[in-house]
Design a protein around this nucleic acid. Sequence first.
DNA 1: TTCCGCAATATGTCTAGGCATATTATGATT
DNA 2: AATCATAATATGCCTAGACATATTGCGGAA
Lengths: 250, 250
Amino acid sequence: MTMKGGAASSLARTGTVPRSREIYDALRQKIVSGEWPAGHRLPSEHELARAFGCARMTIGKALGALAEQRLVTRRRRAGTTVNMPRPQESVLEIHDIEAELLAAGIPYAYESLARRIRRATARDAGTLGVSLGTPVLALTGLHRASGRPHALEERLINLRAVPEARTERFRAISPGRWLLQRIPWTEAEHQIGALNADADIARWLAIRRDTACLAIERNTWRDAQRITHVRVIYPCGEHRLVARFRYRPL
Amino acid sequence: MTMKGGAASSLARTGTVPRSREIYDALRQKIVSGEWPAGHRLPSEHELARAFGCARMTIGKALGALAEQRLVTRRRRAGTTVNMPRPQESVLEIHDIEAELLAAGIPYAYESLARRIRRATARDAGTLGVSLGTPVLALTGLHRASGRPHALEERLINLRAVPEARTERFRAISPGRWLLQRIPWTEAEHQIGALNADADIARWLAIRRDTACLAIERNTWRDAQRITHVRVIYPCGEHRLVARFRYRPL
DNA sequence: TTCCGCAATATGTCTAGGCATATTATGATT
DNA sequence: AATCATAATATGCCTAGACATATTGCGGAA
């Protein structure tokens, strides 16, 4: 099974395979092979512990991982049962474009196109989710790969949450990077959509008008406070979001 | 298509909050609040166990969860250190369209537009990742919401992996559903892109030519075997993929 | 100075047992 | 027969201790 999941275990395991992992794999195999169909009830932890010759907690770990994968449901007293085949719900990973370009050896640059500080307009307040009049920093910038336009970025930063941004020029450093290095965020929401390039977008990205573009919007929170809203626009030919199902080994 | 993290714990917790969860939250708070900046080394498991008044394993559970979240890195002897602010890489959940429409009370229907069995052409072989001449089932269908075209689906099914599909007509049942109910898959890969509607797409989706559309491609494996390749095309106005960063409580 | 081996350390994982809690089955009561 | 209290059961979570293993730092030898 190919699993180039960026999901390399968070811990570089070098030694032997843990027993709980072996058990997890063995049980998982029974399920995905269909030997244990949906609704089938697994043996109890005690029985499995006896069968595998290990402590109950080791079994519990394996079963807990299966439950986290939604392969099984566990209920007290009712036991552990196999779920319906995996729901059509996937975990995707979106990678950082800048990092990816650099990793691929492609020269990357950020260029600021506009920078304005203002009190939040009704529209700003709506997109950024702050109250009217809150000071915000509005940025427009261009990401370049090998010198050519790669993506257009429109960003709003809540200056109440990030006062340091007021004095930063963002001439050549991308605001995303800058923020990441300073503000740990706790939650984010993404929207992915498609849009036809308008005149501005077409000009900056050097594409024809009406070319289909991928638009990714991201809202970022730090606890309850809104940090930033960003919309990044990629021309369709240039970029695809490649995402992989995340294989979680345990 | 809002989907606030379906991330409810896979196990309905009703009782008290587990100690390991409390500890996880406490440590997480230290990190996201910035009190422990990137590079900071956490106290050892022994020290934390003493500080929190619990067994080392309970601490290990909490730290393990932090590591899985990539908030910290753990290395033997070197200890546990806080990572750089979260890399710009996110985990998205894409939910099943059909299920979501139904959940929202919107009538859903699938309509088959084309169905052909053939030996894999060079192009089929490339997209589906099978060898030339392998029998494949090629399907085109339309997803309707409230009777109106919602998405166009182009699918290839590997008949060596799913021989039962040969006799299925797919008149009104969406192949995605059908497959999910039969074939548990073990891995999937997605690509999300944008494209301008060509004449065919425009006709089926009842949109103007060149309208920007969101295209989602998915490849599905069962262990090493390729099951199916599907491309679903949504008109830009109709649909956005909304995804929320997945909060995994532990 | 440089290199190598050894000891100290922190994590990775497991065991055996225990209490808590949710749920089901059972039996007693009306 | 229907209802309700109680016991049995399976999981959820924890403890205390143990051994294994990777990594680091240090001291001695070349």
